[in-house]
Simulated assay, not measured.
Amino acid sequence: MQDYKLTINMFGEFSIVNEAHSLITSKAKSPQMNMLLSYLIANKETDVTKDKLIDVLWPEENSNNPSGALRNLVYRARNEMSEFFPGSQVESILLVGNTYHWNPEIECDVDIYKFEQYCNLASREENPDKRYFFNTQAHLLYKGEFLPMFRMESWVMFRSNYYGNLYTKCILSICDYLNAHEKYRDILMFCEEAINVHPLEESIHKEKINAYLKLGEVQNAMDYYYSIVDLFNQKYGLDITSTMQDIYQSILSQMPNQHVDMDELVENLKNDKNSDGSFYCNFDIFKNIYQINLRSVRRSQSKRYLLLMTLSDLNADSELTVDIRQEMDILHGLMSRCLRRNDVYTQSSFCQFSLIITVANEAGCNTVVKRLRERYTARRQHSNVKLTIDIELIM
């Protein structure tokens, strides 16, 4: 049996391989047999009753003879496994009384058990270098989610979530170590590999953005931020802007203090990279857009204006000063309280807000601008900070 050690992978595609034979999910003739084998291997230290196996293999079926169907499936699985041990009488699935279990005498190298072992070693290790080593070994083993071909099975969902959480901790620990050693390029590499197999973990995306910022690659950080916001929105229907707000502010705080003019702002807003396809958003965003349009219908004679509000420090024209940061907070709070429900605004750079207002005419727009300017001036704390408001009619 020593000559026929099995290598079993359950992360990504399920496979059993040795020198004599191989069983790979994509080439398998019986998914049900793979389910039986994978369940017994994943629970190889546990005796599994016949009733439990029947519930796992046929959860929604009411067979007249479930015990017979199970016996037949076990028989076929044993025949398949015998191919791994030519010339030997090796029983891979044992039946003792009313319970089945994987033969503990078969030498196996199973990825999920090695992965869990390395994660446990890392969590108990106090030496940073050794902890880093254990985590990198665990990282190498995680080739994808646990048994993705059976991801809708309840027992697989539970285990997949468990291993996914372990993997996230593993990657974040690796990033902590590399941050301490200022190896930011290595962080980008590990995060990229991790995202390929674990794409929905926001904390790993944040680590990648932070690495870009540590390298001074602010534009790369911003581009990547927008790409993952679009990915979550378009592919998974998730709006992550609120949970990513902290990292977005970190990016903005390192952006160069370069003002855009009204023409640039209009061009950026008109530039729709996804104009060929329909726009997809989650329900909350859809509801907000609907409500804005509904209110606009009721005011069909109204006009819409784009306002660009820029703060600049008269004492340091090209710098992001502490004074500007504080004044931006004041202006933000003012706009959140003073604007009407159908007005929309956003922070378009670290020292600028863009605002869309709906008014009856140009005089109404001037009234809004005057009110904003007066209320800001009344609350301003630094006289050296100047507010400029540019106006453009949306046509």
Results as ranks from 00 to 15, higher is better:
Leu6Asn: 03
Thr7Leu: 09
Thr7Asp: 08
Ile8Arg: 03
Ile8Leu: 13
Asn9Ser: 10
Asn9Leu: 11
Asn9Tyr: 06
Met10Phe: 01
Met10Asp: 01
Phe11His: 02
Glu13Cys: 06
Phe14Met: 14
Phe14Tyr: 14
Phe14Arg: 11
Ser15Arg: 12
Ile16Leu: 08
Ile16Asn: 02
Val17Gly: 00
Val17Lys: 04
Asn18Pro: 02
Glu19Ser: 13
Ala20Leu: 15
Ala20His: 11
Ala20Trp: 11
His21Gln: 11
His21Thr: 00
His21Asp: 13
His21Lys: 05
Ser22Glu: 15
Ser22Val: 13
Ser22Asn: 14
Ser22Thr: 12
Leu23Phe: 08
Leu23Asn: 10
Ile24Leu: 12
Thr25Cys: 15
Thr25Ser: 15
Thr25Gly: 10
Lys27Ala: 03
Ala28Leu: 14
Ala28Thr: 10
Ala28Lys: 09
Pro31Met: 15
Gln32Glu: 15
Gln32Asn: 14
Met33Pro: 03
Met33Arg: 13
Asn34Asp: 04
Asn34Gly: 03
Met35Thr: 03
Met35Asn: 09
Leu36Trp: 08
Leu36Pro: 08
Leu37Phe: 05
Ser38Lys: 04
Tyr39Lys: 03
Tyr39Pro: 06
Leu40Met: 10
Ile41Leu: 09
Ile41Arg: 03
Ala42His: 06
Asn43Phe: 06
Lys44Tyr: 06
Lys44Ile: 12
Val48Pro: 00
Thr49Cys: 09
Thr49Lys: 07
Thr49Val: 04
Thr49Gly: 08
Thr49Met: 12
Thr49Ala: 13
Lys50Met: 04
Lys50Asp: 00
Lys50Arg: 10
Lys50His: 03
Asp51Phe: 05
Lys52Phe: 00
Lys52Asn: 02
Lys52Gln: 08
Leu53His: 00
Leu53Gly: 01
Leu53Ala: 00
Leu53Asn: 00
Ile54Ala: 05
Ile54Glu: 03
Asp55Cys: 05
Val56Asn: 01
Val56Ser: 01
Trp58His: 08
Trp58Asp: 07
Pro59Ile: 13
Glu60Phe: 05
Glu60Pro: 01
Glu61Gly: 05
Glu61Ser: 08
Glu61Asn: 10
Asn62Gln: 11
Asn62Pro: 01
Asn62Leu: 11
Ser63Thr: 05
Asn64Tyr: 03
Ser67Thr: 03
Ser67Gly: 07
Ser67Trp: 01
Ser67Leu: 12
Ser67Ile: 12
Ala69Phe: 04
Leu70Arg: 04
Leu70Ala: 08
Arg71Gln: 07
Arg71Ile: 07
Arg71Val: 04
Arg71Ala: 04
Asn72Phe: 09
Asn72Cys: 12
Leu73Glu: 08
Tyr75Pro: 06
Tyr75Gln: 11
Arg76Gly: 09
Arg76His: 13
Ala77Pro: 07
Ala77Met: 13
Arg78Ser: 07
Arg78Cys: 09
Asn79Asp: 15
Asn79Leu: 14
Glu80Trp: 00
Ser82Glu: 14
Glu83Lys: 08
Phe84Thr: 04
Phe84Lys: 09
Phe85Lys: 11
Phe85Ser: 11
Pro86Met: 14
Gly87Arg: 15
Gly87Glu: 14
Ser88Trp: 07
Gln89Trp: 00
Gln89Cys: 02
Val90Met: 13
Glu91Gln: 11
Glu91Asn: 04
Ile93His: 02
Ile93Ser: 04
Ile93Asn: 02
Leu94Cys: 07
Leu95Ala: 04
Leu95Lys: 10
Gly97His: 09
Asn98His: 07
Asn98Gly: 11
Asn98Ile: 11
Thr99Leu: 13
Thr99Ile: 12
